[in-house]
Measured scan of single mutants.
Amino acid sequence: MDVFMKGLSKAKEGVVAAAEKTKQGVAEAAGKTKEGVLYVGSKTKEGVVHGVATVAEKTKEQVTNVGGAVVTGVTAVAQKTVEGAGSIAAATGFVKKDQLGKNEEGAPQEGILEDMPVDPDNEAYEMPSEEGYQDYEPEA
């Protein structure tokens, strides 16, 4: 019985440690998101679009440190934060509304985080759909 109880105690310690790591990862992701939003706020009209992409990228980098179902929630929060940063930029006159959601080359930025393969159960990952990809044929 002692062996059984000791095993359960060790398992509990492992769960607590994993929860603490997840909590730490979420806190880091939130900190990076805040950094990115402050970065966007300090940019001029020309830099705002690039700044919004930076927020998304920093958040995406930190999301990889967070495991399990938390990833889905962090990704949703990050996307809403990026959308909010863009709205703030438009409201303050840093950028025109028609410039939001495009990178410096004018290509749409939507789907940055949505296409990231995420499995809350950590069982399997699927690649994003290939609808947006084109076949590449090298020139002879």
Rank of each mutant, 00 (worst) to 15 (best):
E83G: 12
V37W: 07
V82H: 12
A56F: 14
K80S: 06
V74N: 01
Y136P: 03
V16W: 09
T33C: 15
K34D: 01
Q79F: 10
S42L: 01
S9K: 13
E104P: 10
D121T: 11
V74C: 05
S129M: 09
Q109Y: 13
T44M: 07
T75Y: 08
V26S: 04
K97P: 03
Q99P: 05
Q62A: 07
Y39I: 08
V74H: 00
N65T: 02
N103M: 05
M1H: 00
G36C: 02
I88N: 07
E137S: 12
T54A: 10
P108L: 05
K45Q: 12
K21H: 15
A107I: 12
V71N: 08
E20R: 14
A91R: 09
G14V: 12
V37S: 12
E28K: 15
Q134N: 10
Q99S: 01
L8I: 13
Y39A: 07
V70I: 11
E139V: 11
V66D: 00
G36L: 01
E130L: 10
Y133K: 01
G25N: 03
G51P: 08
P120N: 09
E105L: 07
A140L: 04
V55W: 06
T75I: 15
A27Y: 13
K97I: 01
T54D: 01
V55F: 15
G101H: 11
S87C: 12
E110C: 08
A124E: 05
A91E: 03
Q134A: 07
V82R: 15
Q62E: 12
Q62G: 04
G68H: 15
M116I: 14
P128R: 07
Q24I: 12
A53Q: 12
A107W: 15
G93N: 06
P128E: 08
E61R: 12
K32A: 04
N103Y: 13
F4E: 00
Q24E: 14
N65R: 11
E61W: 09
G14A: 11
K10C: 01
E83F: 02
A76S: 04
M127G: 07
E131I: 03
E139H: 12
F4L: 15
G67P: 02
E110P: 10
E35L: 14
P128Q: 01
A85F: 11
E13H: 03
V40L: 09
K102I: 03
S42K: 15
A56N: 04
K12S: 06
G51H: 15
Q134S: 07
G51A: 15
T22C: 15
A91Y: 03
G51F: 10
E83Q: 11
Y136F: 08
P120F: 10
E114M: 10
N122P: 05
G47S: 12
G106Q: 06
D115P: 05
F94N: 14
Y39W: 04
K60H: 03
A69Y: 06
A140F: 11
G93C: 04
Y125V: 08
A56R: 05
A69M: 14
T33G: 08
A90C: 12
V118G: 07
D121N: 08
E137F: 03
V49I: 12
M5Y: 02
Q134P: 15
F4D: 01
D121V: 03
A11E: 00
A56K: 15
Y39H: 04
E13C: 10
G41R: 08
I88V: 06
K23I: 00
A89W: 11
T44L: 12
S129Q: 09
E20I: 13
D98T: 07
A56H: 09
